[in-house]
Design a protein around this nucleic acid. Structure first.
Lengths: 261, 261
DNA sequence: GATGTTGATG
DNA sequence: CATCAACATC
């Protein structure tokens, strides 16, 4: 039974992170790699670098930061960008499609600036619109994997200092509720399936603060969620610190899950 | 008799050109390297990189582009920046001092935008003020080397297309006159001493035009001039294309002269 | 602090 | 086209 790996990585500029992403793909050969914050418009996306190593890549980005991409060895099917509900589609935040035969969503949730700001309301609304797409395009009874930087640390054990950080846009009751609704729809948090109750396991370490990695000052805001059908096949979900250790500019780590299909 | 090399290089940002400048200094060990367009304010000048390889460096730059620096293995003496005639001193365009025992001037002449513009008048005036400093601080009977990007191609053989370029701020009768006056004061053009009449020997290749190096589409606007006392000791004056070939962003070459002291 | 963007310069 | 400054985002 071949290894079936699905991974997510907030790259913080794909052009500045190619030397990390490409070797990682070559060594790990995942069935899907979801990327966020590619920070490049489509005409400048370095698709050739992925093709050279036998990966297809779909992507959507503009000039406003953000940007998402999904790389896969097989040609993806039914690829859609953004939310088609008549409002601002935010194509640079969402890709859905079938990758390696498995329905996959790559999501980059808005960060939200601060709770008092309109950006935070936009974040909450985005979660609602995201779940609509989920319901409309997929079934909780089918196979689905949701990957991405969801800009939420769901529990106190998911941040280094829950007391001080309460009220942060990624750590407050309102965003927890949105995340809960997502799970209620029919998604399991694969990291927690394999690491229940483990505190201090983080996917993000702010590089503006010195020594965050050494002192384990981080956040678990990148996630791989899956429907029962897929979660039942997952055998492992781990955080790969290598990119974060390689250079601080990569402040997110790679999160991956392995499945037995 | 040790090699006594004096060189000039318009670096187009010293911070972006360190990987060229530092190895060049290590390999060539010049007594003086004059640099122009360092494009860095003094608080950010990478002086440590020069110290590490045993070079002193004096520099002056602001936030307006420009910026000059001189590197030398020995501690320089009598270093002065700019023109102290009561007008705008332009400290980021001129360094005078004694480097390795030899009086040296590093000059970055104003480019002049276009002949009709006030910037061109400023360029002509700058040349006059420059000669005043020359007369006041040095003697044509003594030793002196003047290096720099003087933004003048003195003769038709110093540009690739004299017909079409006539009237350019670096190639016109008015700026030729200023350059002539400089020589009349008592300076010899060392490149022409060793390469009299040779056409198509350039120190600058515009990187906005593709293939300038291959097609030899250039300008000779960087110069090493010397008083009789120093010119008599010069044995060689050459253009080092290596930096220009290494990366197009370095659109000037390194010009150097060797002396037997 | 490490990435973008825009607009200005040569 | 490659730099800079300024600003904006995470």
């Amino acid at each position: 039974m071949p290894l079936f790996r699905i991974a997510t990585y907030n790259v913080n500029s794909i052009r500045s992170r190619l030397h990390i992403v490409i070797p990682w793909l070559e060594r790990n050969r995942p069935v899907v790699l979801c990327m966020q914050e590619t920070k490049v418009s489509d005409d400048l996306f370095p698709a050739d670098e992925f093709r050279k190593i036998g990966y297809h890549v779909v992507f959507r980005g503009g000039k406003k930061g953000n940007g998402v991409a999904v790389a896969a060895p097989e040609t993806p099917r039914e690829v859609k960008f953004g939310i088609d509900d008549g409002k601002e589609p935010c194509e640079d935040r969402l890709i859905t499609g079938i990758f390696g035969g498995v329905p996959v969503i790559n999501a980059y949730a808005p960060q939200g600036f601060k709770m008092q700001a309109p950006q935070f309301q936009f974040k909450l609304e985005w979660y609602g619109r995201f779940r609509e797409i989920l319901s409309r395009r997929f079934s909780p009874k089918g196979r689905l994997v949701v990957c991405g930087d969801l800009n939420v640390a769901p529990e106190p054990i998911d941040v280094h200092n829950p007391k001080r950080l309460l009220g942060h846009v990624d750590f407050n009751p309102e965003i927890w509720k949105e995340f809960e609704e997502l799970k209620k729809w029919g998604l399991l948090d694969l990291f927690r399936k394999h690491h229940a109750g483990e505190a201090g396991r983080f996917t993000f370490f702010d590089y503006r603060i010195p020594g965050t990695v050494e002192r384990n000052i981080g956040w678990r805001v990148d996630h791989i969620l899956a429907t029962k059908a897929m979660a039942g096949k997952s055998v492992r979900c781990e955080i790969d610190m290598a990119p974060r250790l390689a250079e601080k500019a990569s402040d997110h780590t790679i999160l991956f899950a392995d499945f037995e299909i």
